[in-house]
Amino acid sequence: MRIIDVHAHWGPWPFHMEVGDVALNLELMDRYGIELQIVSAAEAVVYDAVAGNAKLAEVLQEQPRLHGYAVVNANRLERSAQDLRDCLSTGRFVGAKIHTTYPGVPIGSPLMADTFDMLDEVGVPLLLHTWGTDVSLLPEMLENRPNLKVIAGHAGGDAWREAARAAVECDRIYLEHCRTVTDAGRITFARSVGVPMEQFLFGTDSTLIDPCISLGVIRDAGFTPEELEQVLATNASRLFGL
């Protein structure tokens, strides 16, 4: 069974854990049968986007099973936009990643709107850290940005019901449920309100989180074999051309 992980990281985190070696990415991928992983640099997420992206670019040159997200900092849009284009030009990056908490830019911020404009122009998928009810703003924000496809990373966190309803409203919003706190019934709820199977993606937050956490969520969701194939690989393959 093919598995593509659309939400992963490379590099160390400022917590009591030792997960920064790319060898761990590969060890965990092998353990669970994950073929490909799309990663952003932890340093780029929590500290310096451009510097972190540059370090990741070097790692990606040696790791064909990993692809990259270039982290975009909405507070430094002009610099980040150029950096994104530079990263994409290497052929090893396939999307953009935006965290909302570390740079302090919520989804409803004017800075985020400007950043969405830029991403709509560039036309690559965006992995957006979503954590809270402002995930409900996404359908309206995508209405006039026809080229932008957004993966709702963590599927809204605590606001997983709002994230599901947003995905029903807009077919360019994808749900990805990785999270340490694995609230029961999130996927069942999303399906019950009408999120199409095409809009579910598989992500892990590895190596910050062990992939088995998200795999457990998938196991408990009770997908059919055909649905599993779609969620674990086919949808991501289509979205990223992998």
Partner: peptide, 10 residues
Amino acid sequence: FMDISPQTLR
């Protein structure tokens, strides 16, 4: 309130 499999798998 939480899925069990993520925890048993870990």
